[in-house]
Design a protein around this nucleic acid. Structure first.
Lengths: 348, 348
DNA sequence: ACGTAAATTTAAAACGTTTTGAAGTGGAGG
DNA sequence: CCTCCACTTCAAAACGTTTTAAATTTACGT
């Protein structure tokens, strides 16, 4: 492994000059810089992160603690995020250190890693209401960036999709098709995304003077079977007149709902419109379903580059900088939605 | 953050002595040691890992490069391994740096990380025949430990299950129940585990004088539907007399096979015995199926601690040490296997 | 009391980088 | 020819630890 000293010796320069030349300091002679760079590339020089860290106090590594749910429902999301994030961080020469949190105490994993004093900051995902991790990191002044944002507590770098907007776009579109009985298969309670979409849904419907009975707005683990069961319940007519449209918080749930419709002899979209939110995961493509699914789309991988940059900017610029991004979902109209069936345009 | 110097100054000792006292060197006076330890704990001293690493040349971090398949079939395995591995490494004060390999060149990711010079070694999973990663790491003298082992190329630390044994145990058990027409739903070609079990299966059957037509030994992507389709094909009678027993390389495949049997009106186990290999993943429990599945069991998580230790031992002791573990699978007899149905005990 | 070996401790070097304060160039202006 | 200044470069310190080689203290037999 070539060091600054090696380069310096070869050129008769001090390590100080070499260091500055490679780090684009202004005071170094242009000719010298090119010579240094030339030798550095020839020797395949890479700065020793460890040594760098010792003097700068930074390690060029950030951590992400993954919480493993027994239900494993977040696997796919997680892997997709992981892929994009390592790539995005690598772009800026930062490595990702992973830790899996198996304890019930969500702080324990952070603590362990922090004691090592190895990491410059953290990526947090899937924030919950009153997330203790945020309080913990904030207290210690450790930089972090969140994938998602907690309503009412927004003073940190984050990348979030406008969940309120997702609900609104979906409902508005269905309203424009004449639907009035709109049901919602939502994600699990406690997760910010579910709660926000729930609030958005309720608000938009209310503004239109439309109520939604509890049975038609459910909070489910995002697995196909849960969607199926809940949709069966809604569409069977037992809980009241069946909805003419269902909004699903994820494509998996929509798959379940479509199967339920089929089993009950309902045609999508002529009897029932289905619209889902799509994170654009590679193994669950909404455009390969039959019929192709109308979705609000916000690719999970879009989050990775901004998230990585937000965190790195925060680390390098200190707490004065609070980079935040709110992404809007895009409505993609396909074949699973149609105008309300005749005689079904009255509300609940 | 307290340093060695702080402790030394408080006690009028040099940092050298303090360092030795805390690292259990024999030459330090017992009384001195207790004094040092006392002050260290009082000040909440934690060794600065970065400084430690700069001088020892070790980083206390190992890497794992995950290859993301488009089919995502290995997700669950991966997350299970990840969980156990971080925990096992943490036990020995080592962190796991993760990198996701999206390129077609499997080496690229290793190269990028190695250039940084921050990792002490690597965990490799899912080795393939003639795996280029192994050649690459070996050439550079970089420590690694493999989850699995490549037949004919075993000169490295690894943890592997005896795949040959898995096949043998399964076949022997079925033979003892009188079965002669035994089919195999295997994993994908190219993976060591599939090839080894294939070889083991062929050998044991041959030794018994039993041949297996190609149509009854298939190599499948480990997803439920593949198992279903292949089993349907085998059980329909189109390819020859139907097997009386099917061995599946994974529980998912067995689920597909059981569904196929059901759809064809065959009872498990009276018409068809099914036995699978079970990695004991938390979301795919062979004992919750109906009927409960007979399996050869080797929990994936059992691999993590030995793997972590093997790698760390290799890193600390150099290439003279080649720790290797071969795990045997345990036969768990449940309700999906029974004696061969009357009139079906003749071979193909 | 003395020399010697053993036990304990120390000073200093090393790891590879960044950064500080100082010093070395060369040219312009007097 | 001297001074001043801008432009470059350098030597050395610093980060916190481990480790080497040397120094000091202690213990012991004579």
């Amino acid at each position: 492994m070539a060091t600054l000293k090696d380069i310096g010796e070869e050129l008769g320069l001090s390590t100080a000059t070499v260091s500055r030349a490679l780090n684009d300091f202004p005071e170094v002679n242009a000719a010298t810089r090119t010579r240094v760079v030339e030798v550095a590339t020839r020797l395949g020089y890479r700065p020793n992160r460890i040594a760098q860290r010792l003097v700068t106090g930074r390690s060029g590594m950030v951590g992400m603690i993954v919480k493993v749910n027994p239900d494993m429902s977040t696997d796919r999301n997680f892997l997709e995020t992981l892929t994009g994030l390592t790539a995005a961080l690598a772009q800026r020469d930062v490595e990702l250190v992973l830790s899996v949190d198996q304890h019930d105490n969500p702080i324990a994993a952070y603590q362990r890693i922090l004691e090592r004093g190895i990491l410059d900051g953290f990526i947090l995902n899937a924030p919950q209401l009153n997330d203790p991790r945020i309080e913990f990191l904030r207290q210690r002044g450790i930089p972090f960036a969140v994938h998602g944002v907690i309503p009412g507590d927004t003073d940190y770098p984050y990348y979030a999709v406008n969940n309120h907007g997702i609900a609104k776009v979906s409902v508005d579109f269905l309203l424009s098709l004449g639907h009035r009985r709109i049901a919602y298969l939502n994600g699990e309670r406690g997760h910010v995304y579910s709660e926000e979409r729930a609030a958005g849904f309720a608000k938009v419907m209310q503004a239109e003077g439309l109520g939604v009975p509890d049975a038609f707005h459910t909070f489910l683990e995002p697995v196909e079977n849960e969607g199926y069961l809940s949709a069966i319940n809604m569409l069977s007519g037992r809980a009241g007149p069946r909805p003419t449209a269902i909004i699903c918080s994820s494509v998996v749930l929509a798959v379940g709902a479509m199967r339920a419709a089929k089993d009950l002899g309902l045609n999508v979209p002529s009897d029932l419109s289905i619209i889902a939110h799509d994170d654009d995961l590679p193994d669950m493509r909404s455009d390969t379903l039959v019929p192709q699914l109308t979705v609000t789309m916000s690719p999970l991988r879009d989050a990775c580059v901004p998230l990585a940059n937000h965190l790195i900017d925060r680390i390098t610029s200190g707490p004065t900088v609070v980079p935040q991004t709110v992404a809007e979902a895009r409505l993609v109209v396909r074949a699973s939605t149609a105008t309300v069936p005749l005689g079904h345009s009255d509300p609940w």
